[in-house]
Write a protein that binds this DNA or RNA. Sequence first.
DNA 1: CCAAAAGTGTTGGCGTTACACCCATGG
DNA 2: CCATGGGTGTAACGCCAACACTTTTGG
Lengths: 209, 209
Amino acid sequence: MQVRVEVVVFAIRAGKLRVLLAPPEGGVRALPGGIPGGDESLDAAARRVLGEATGNDDLYLEQLYTFSEPRRAGAGGRISVAYFAIAPGAGGQDAAGFSPARRPPRLVRDHGRILALGVERLRTKTEYSTVPLRFLEEPFTLSEVQAVYEVLLDRPLDKRNFRRKMLALEAIEETAGRRRVGAHRPARLFRLSPARPYLLKERGILFPF
Amino acid sequence: MQVRVEVVVFAIRAGKLRVLLAPPEGGVRALPGGIPGGDESLDAAARRVLGEATGNDDLYLEQLYTFSEPRRAGAGGRISVAYFAIAPGAGGQDAAGFSPARRPPRLVRDHGRILALGVERLRTKTEYSTVPLRFLEEPFTLSEVQAVYEVLLDRPLDKRNFRRKMLALEAIEETAGRRRVGAHRPARLFRLSPARPYLLKERGILFPF
DNA sequence: CCAAAAGTGTTGGCGTTACACCCATGG
DNA sequence: CCATGGGTGTAACGCCAACACTTTTGG
């Protein structure tokens, strides 16, 4: 039985949720994937694939789900252990390889299902965890954090409530720096709290409003 | 690379959370497991193993996580796709094969980790879903439902608040029957709502109190 | 001095918690 | 009539959502 890992790499580009797709194999696109080496754990294989696809193997990565396709006439069965990862940065034009995540092009085999599950998981995690912070490059402003959450939840959030709640989580901490762009008041800059780079709910939900 | 499925079958017996273990292989106990047939999906294999272990392949079953052990000197790598299942009934003495889930005996390979993750997943799901209803045999009383939640959350719950909340979910519905045992007021009997046999949160958390 | 993003507090409503007594029955 | 588990309502509190203006800067 063939075992593969597939990685759903999300990013926000130009204000939209995007997913990294590998170059077309025979006209149809695919998630980055590969076959674990004999002495490699699944996590290690996923991280290797992630590094090959993005040039960075140090991104947030977690296992998503394991899919199987039973053997069909002629072919052996295949198992895909799917992971999802988050690539930081909202960089405008280096969107090479990124496609819309919610309305993706046609994908090989069951990669459409895998992607759909990844999108769903990302959305639910946005409601009760701070993984969305992984979309940001440090240092970042609170407005940028809010923008990420708004993209992921696909709705606007109240600025004051958002800030109060986000700060209360202590998942980010202020730095001394200030960012000044254009004719505006300079923005405070934050980074992930080393103690809790991301944080699951202790209790309650983060963004019900 | 060898692929296996392992199934964590939970039940409540004598007021405690228990897990079904297979007969000892060489002194150490193991979760029920097996090797998927070539034309079998992982879900189908898990359900088959479940049926072999419990005599009933129609229980609640969901995928838990996929574990891998890299190849060690001499041996090939192994992948375990773990599932968790719920066996209903609080039957007192048919506890054959069931061991304490939170303080299990020593288990083979990484089955201890798998079980621990299953226990943890069950606890978190208890807070935001109605899967715990699967521990009950229909028809059941509200007091029985509360007892299940108390075992899973490992703390007492307020009776009036519990009932109000549980009924508001519309995950269970009253039947015409009444259960009378001993010198007590007869209890109303319920069953799972066919429409929503179990229900994930729409919003918010079920049992924060 | 104007435009634009950053930043900041308060209040009303709702949901959650806490809490104690009556009901129905069999023996 | 008593013991036991089933069943029920309300009030206080705290959290959440809604809401608008001031600050800071560059041009």
